[in-house]
């Protein structure tokens, strides 16, 4: 804990960082969330999952949403994607209210959701096909998206022939093929092993850099959030509401080497403080009985 004392506060932005975020906020707002709330009714009463959420996501911004389990992260992204209806507030995409799911908001799920009966290329062409677009132009586009996620050699493979990381890359390509205004990602790398996950994060940043896309990314992994995001929306549980919106001072392009930079650590430390308050740390007050008589002591 002593090292922490020497870290700067992430809010003490250098002029360069302050300028970066001033510019970010001058961009057009792609997604605007206004007074969003969601209550679930059950026989035992009602549960407020989300309450009074207000935030904007700017064009080409990479925003992460983080919070303890049960803080309503998933409910939030399900509402944004249109799979659930909010009980209060509204959702504006490019200034227009949206209801229900639509191709203007792409979604990548944590579970593997490629259609198993379609090849990689057919999966990527699914969205355009639903919109009634067919033909060689669509196929050509699909090939480009597949190339972008580095899977050109697999365009005729079926999902069962791909690894978990490859499946998620196809899922990203499939969502992008609709040319959505925003890409919503619900812990997309949560089921992957640590190495693949790190690779996927770098892939994602590259894709984001190369195309005009805004990303809202849900995670419960502090490092993932700090590595990826421009800004991090920290949610508080019961009821789910915004705790703080953190402007990540770590410069881009990001690399894993930055994980020991002071601004990286300061940001991570701040999120950690927010989502694991001091009083909740340290074994959570559970008394564990000693069950060994052996002599060798452990610290």
């Amino acid at each position: 804990m002593t090292a922490v004392a020497t870290l700067p506060d992430y809010r003490e932005q250098s002029p360069a960082v302050a300028e970066r975020f001033r510019k970010l906020k001058q961009r057009p707002v792609v997604l605007s969330v206004r007074g969003l709330g969601k209550t679930f009714g059950s026989t035992e009463g009602t549960v407020t999952a989300l309450q009074g959420l207000d935030f904007d996501v700017y064009r080409r911004e990479f925003m992460c949403v983080i919070g303890q389990s049960g803080c309503g992260k998933s409910t939030l992204i399900r509402i944004l994607s249109g799979l659930e209806q909010p009980t209060s507030g509204e959702l504006l995409l490019d200034g227009k209210v949206v209801h229900g799911p639509g191709p203007d908001r792409g979604m990548v799920f944590q579970s593997y959701t490629l259609f198993p009966w379609l090849t990689v290329k057919q999966n990527v062409m699914f969205g355009p096909k639903m919109a009634g677009r067919t033909g060689t132009a669509v196929e050509q586009e699909a090939r480009q998206w597949i190339e972008m996620v580095g899977l050109s050699d697999f365009e005729n493979s079926y999902p069962f022939q791909l690894s978990g990381g490859m499946k998620q890359r196809v899922a990203i390509a499939r969502a992008l093929a609709n040319q959505p205004r925003i890409l919503l990602m619900d812990e997309p790398f949560g089921a992957l092993d640590a190495q693949t996950r790190a690779q996927m994060q770098e892939y994602l940043l590259q894709i984001w850099k190369n195309i005009d896309i805004t990303i809202l990314f849900i995670t419960h992994d502090l490092d993932e959030a700090v590595f990826l995001a421009d800004r991090i929306l920290v949610l508080k549980a019961k009821p789910g509401r915004i705790d703080e919106i953190i402007e990540v001072p770590v410069p881009r392009p990001r690399s894993l080497d930055q994980a020991i930079d002071p601004e990286y650590l300061a940001t991570k430390h701040r999120i950690n403080e927010l989502i694991h308050p001091r009083e909740q740390r340290g074994g959570g007050g559970v008394e564990i009985p000693r069950m060994t008589m052996a002599g060798d002591e452990v610290e």
């Binding site: 799979l83 259609f115 639903m130």
Partner: peptide, 22 residues
């Protein structure tokens, strides 16, 4: 899988398409 149906909906499938194609 419910996830497949929801994926299709976020990809722009209408109810009829989601029912028949997914």
């Amino acid at each position: 899988s419910r996830d497949l149906v929801e994926s299709a909906q976020t990809l722009g499938a209408n109810r009829r398409q989601a029912l028949l194609k997914v």
